[in-house]
Design a protein around this nucleic acid. Structure first.
Length: 936
DNA sequence: CAGAAAACGTA
DNA sequence: GTACGTTTTCTGT
């Protein structure tokens, strides 16, 4: 039986580059990848194949680039250290007597595919040596003619030579691999699959429906979000299948039979081994060994099993190309339980000048969390965990927490030593609550990722490690369990905790090494990160720590009042319905209204059910009394359930105040979001709602001061569009909606009717959300034709606005992102692909994001400025006459000594107004009161 | 018991 | 029509 080995040279080159340390020879030339490849070749040649080829990619476009221009578009160029090793590698391969195949315009995969199939058809026993799982599609068991195709990965030692082996790994036979890959997509090659569909889901579907066509044909039957994702991806799946299918019919000049292993060029090999310092290989060569690389292999095998002991997954996760090899080696982690050991680490961290750190605690709530341990890393791959509060039976002795913090304090409070973290705001809280005022917080990988890829939903460390390092971190659930069985971190064994915690610091450091250069390459983004986001971290930490005082008694009174009225509404509803039902259940309500009472269902939910939302109930309120009563009940229930009942529960027993949590990487546009509780959606529109604001109070002797930007997003629209009419309207200082109405309807300001102003306001807001005539008609309760006329009229008066919107859409389509005045980017995933609805949505987001995002940039800058100014207002004891306590997108709320209020109004107003220079002035309105309602 | 869907509060 | 978070019920494991 003739045996042919086809080596996927490119894949090994990259894998060796990433998996091995950055070795160099005595002349300083990089040799790491070379070393790995030679090692692999040695193992291969030991098998004594009679036919062999080393296949590499040739530069130039392939059919995949023609089919799909974004193919591999997100790949960074080959790093210089790797590039430098390509030529020597080719020389060594050649000297070993192996042919190198490089075909213009054809990817190595397709060359290998074609040769494999031809050889197998001719009865040859083919082995494809690769680290690329995609080749599983070519696996063929020995047939009648004896030909077969098997897959080996020399680096991981795995072998796949049957459908059973393929199915064991992927859950589907070889013939279904392309379907599986089409569904999953390939992030490395920039081929998006079905969102949230990984190997498990894809295999499950293929098991159920047989093939990709079967899955596509049954897409309507697949439920849930993932079903939606599948349907959204339907259009591109056939293209995906083509892209992931390895060609087996490309035109080649060579035949499998021509690829004979030749005699090695011993002199050339000797010269090459000498030059690159492969001394062991040289010795083997002189000894006449055929396996010329055996000596090298012995060196590499001195660390057995390390690929398994690390978080690096051999085949599942592709290490991103261009990654510094130092960032792809497993870490060595140690527990620090003695003072001398800790002092040694402190010296290392101080000498390094910057280090990554992380805290481990017993709670996710930073205002409650107790410190259980600290981890540190100053160079990739080396990290320490200092356990301080593990208290399970049999826990090893640990350093006393106070003593350890005393040792660490000078380092942690020294601003000249830079610290980096992942979501460091949390750690800042924890350290502050344990008496350490951490200084020099310089970098945060969460924010680096957010600024670089705000469109990406996930910026948690596990996701970042997977995305940027090809690394699978130890999961919290693995060490602490999950659900009801979860134990607090203080009961996790010190051994488990050491790996988990030290890895956090180590990976944070590695991520920073990857993300920081990417930011540096984009000066505008770097500025957003450096000038806006990083300075904001300690400011947000202070706002959260300050908290806001709420009048719990007042809320309880309101709850009682709401309960009374809810009960009345409920009784009336039961009467009207003729039976009892759950007023909170849209489903029961739906059955009652539209089946029993036969009222018309005019509005549908997104899932196609009859909706019982406010709009639907309003629409039938004139036909039955029940809808009104339901609406009344709903309003009361919302206020009680979300606010008056819940806020008292959220009061921190230690501080007597409510401490929200702000998410700096929460909204893709750059806005903050707030949770636990969300203090950015406290009611204001209705009288009942506003009463809740009266429970947000100032303590005796203090006042609440609210300062908000007036019409900031519209002003930004005027600035961005430079529309003469809109600029004039703002410069006149008049009420903007009235001014717009006057302009659009062509009459003097004072003659604008209430209805005209309402229409103008709806247009102003609607345009900022990318609204069309349909939406405006709904909003104003007018015909579509009339709404279209209004919009046309608006654009004829403000042509600059129309041009701006069109420019924005174009920029979004062309670049795939839009940006704020500060240069913050929002990437729009669906602006070019996806369904019609997804594209339309992306266009609306593209219109809105620059305005919403610029407003967010401005208030963030203002917050940093105001915080700095307030810090300078503290008295000798460090007490501040005013605290920043809330941010609600365009509003800042302060709690201030009564006597300081005038100074605060001036100091804050000045800084908010000057936080950006736009073509139109920024205007800030302020109010003062004993509670938040009064301050408006 | 976790996650989806529906509803609704804010800018 | 943009951007969020929280509540409740209901569904499916």
């Amino acid at each position: 039986m003739t045996r042919l080995v086809l080596i996927d040279g490119s894949s090994y080159l990259y894998r060796a580059f990433h998996a091995l340390p950055p070795l160099t020879n005595s002349a300083g030339e990089p040799t790491g990848a070379l070393f790995g490849v030679v090692n692999m070749l040695r193992a291969t040649l030991k098998e004594r194949p009679d036919h062999i080829a080393f296949v590499v990619d040739a530069p130039g476009k392939t059919f995949r680039d023609d089919l799909y221009p974004q193919y591999k578009a997100n790949r960074p160029p080959m790093p210089d250290e790797l590039r430098a090793q390509v030529q020597p590698m080719c020389e060594i391969v050649h000297a070993l007597g192996i042919d190198i195949l490089r075909v213009e315009g054809v990817e190595a995969d397709d060359v290998i595919g074609t040769l494999a199939v031809r050889a197998a058809d001719a009865g040859m026993e083919v082995t494809i040596s690769t680290s690329d799982k995609d080749f599983a599609q070519l696996v063929r068991e020995p047939g009648v003619g004896g030909g077969s195709v098997a897959l080996v990965n020399t680096m991981s030692g795995s072998r796949m030579d049957s459908d059973a082996a393929v199915a064991e790994k992927f859950g589907v036979p070889a013939a279904r691999i392309v379907d599986l890959l089409a569904l999953m997509g390939d992030a490395v090659d920039n081929v998006p699959g079905v969102d949230k569909c990984g190997p498990k889901t894809a295999a499950k579907w293929l098991g159920q429906y047989g093939s990709l066509d079967g899955v596509m044909g049954n897409a309507a039957a697949i439920k849930g979000k993932i079903g939606e994702n599948l349907r959204a991806a339907l259009e591109r799946l056939p293209l995906n299948r083509t892209l992931v299918t390895i060609k087996t019919d490309v035109a080649l000049e060579c035949t499998p039979q021509s690829l004979r292993l030749r005699e090695p060029h011993v002199d050339d090999l000797r010269a090459l081994y000498t030059r690159y310092g492969f001394n062991q290989a040289l010795k083997e060569l002189e000894a006449g060994s055929v396996a010329a690389g055996a000596g090298i292999a012995a060196v590499a095998e001195k660390e057995p099993g390390r690929a398994r002991s690390s978080g690096f997954v051999a085949a599942q996760v592709a290490v991103p190309e261009g990654l510094d090899p130092a960032l792809a080696t497993p870490g060595r982690y140690e527990a620090v339980t003695e003072a001398g050991h800790l002092e040694a680490w402190i010296a290392v961290l101080r000498n390094a000048g910057r280090f990554a750190f992380d805290t481990e605690t017993d709670s996710l709530d930073p205002m409650r969390a107790n410190l259980v341990g600290l981890s540190f890393a100053a160079e990739p791959g080396r990290a320490a965990y200092v356990p301080l509060g593990h208290d399970y039976p049999g826990a090893p002795p640990q350093l006393d927490r106070a003593r350890a913090l005393d040792l660490l304090r000078p380092l942690l409070e020294d601003a000249s030593v830079a610290k980096l973290g992942q979501h460091g705001k949390y750690d800042l809280h924890v350290m502050r609550r344990h008496g350490v005022a951490l200084a020099g917080y310089a970098d945060d990988t969460l924010l680096e990722s957010f600024v670089l890829e705000s469109g990406n939903a996930r910026h948690d460390m596990d996701s970042l490690a997977r995305r940027h390092l090809g690394y699978e971190t130890k999961k919290y659930e693995e060490v602490a369990g999950k659900g009801a069985k979860q134990i607090p971190f203080s009961q996790v064994s010190v051994e488990d905790a050491t790996f988990y915690a030290a890895e956090d610091a180590d990976i944070t450091l590695r991520l920073h090494r990857v993300l920081a250069p990417r930011l540096a390459a984009e000066p505008a983004l770097e500025a957003v990160y450096r000038d806006i986001e990083m300075p904001l971290v300690p400011v947000l930490e202070r706002i959260e720590a300050n908290g806001v005082k709420v009048d719990v008694d007042e809320l309880r009174r309101q709850s009682a009042d709401l309960s009374r009225r809810m009960l009345a509404a409920q009784q009336r509803a039961t009467e009207l319905a003729g039976r009892a039902f759950n007023l909170d259940s849209p489903k029961q309500l739906c059955a009652l209204l539209f089946e029993e009472l036969k009222l018309p269902a005019l509005v549908k939910t997104p899932k196609g059910q009859p909706s019982t939302n406010e709009e639907a109930l309003e629409a039938i309120a004139d036909q039955h009394e029940l809808p009104r009563v339901i609406l009344e009940y709903r309003g009361l229930a919302k206020l009680r359930g979300t606010y008056t009942d819940k806020l008292p529960e959220m009061v921190d027993p230690d501080t007597g105040r409510v401490h929200t949590s702000y998410h700096q990487a929460g909204a893709a546009t750059g806005r903050l979001s707030s949770s636990d509780p969300n203090l950015q959606n406290i009611p204001i529109r209705t009288e009942d709602g506003r009463r809740i604001r009266r429970a947000f109070v100032a303590p005796p002797g203090r006042k609440l001061v609210a300062c908000d930007y007036s019409q900031i997003e519209l002003r930004i629209m005027a600035h961005l569009s430079q529309d003469a009419g809109l600029l004039r309207a703002f410069e006149s200082g008049a009420d903007i909606h009235r001014a717009t109405a006057a302009e659009v309807f062509g009459r003097p300001l004072e003659e604008v009717t209430a209805n005209e102003r309402r229409a103008a306001k709806a247009i102003n807001f609607g345009l900022m959300y990318g609204m069309g005539a349909f939406g405006l008609a709904r909003q104003l309760g007018i015909g579509r034709g009339q709404a279209q006329d209004y919009i046309a009229l608006y654009f004829s008066r403000y042509p600059g606005v129309r041009d701006y919107m069109e420019r924005t859409r174009e920029q979004a389509r062309e670049h795939g992102y839009v940006e704020t005045v500060s240069g913050r980017r929002l990437y729009l995933e669906y602006i070019r692909g996806g369904t019609q609805a997804q594209r339309a949505g992306a266009e609306r987001a593209a219109i809105n994001a620059p305005m919403q995002g610029t407003a967010a940039d401005i208030i963030k800058r203002a917050m940093v400025e105001v915080d700095g100014w307030l810090a300078g207002q503290r008295d000798a004891s460090g007490r501040s006459p005013a605290l920043m306590i809330l941010q609600v997108h365009d509003e800042l709320v302060f709690e201030a000594d009564e006597a300081f209020v005038p100074a605060l109004l001036e100091g804050v107003g000045e800084r908010m107004v000057s936080a950006a220079r736009l073509t139109v002035p920024l205007v800030v309105d302020s109010g003062v009161g004993d509670n938040w309602d009064e301050a408006h």
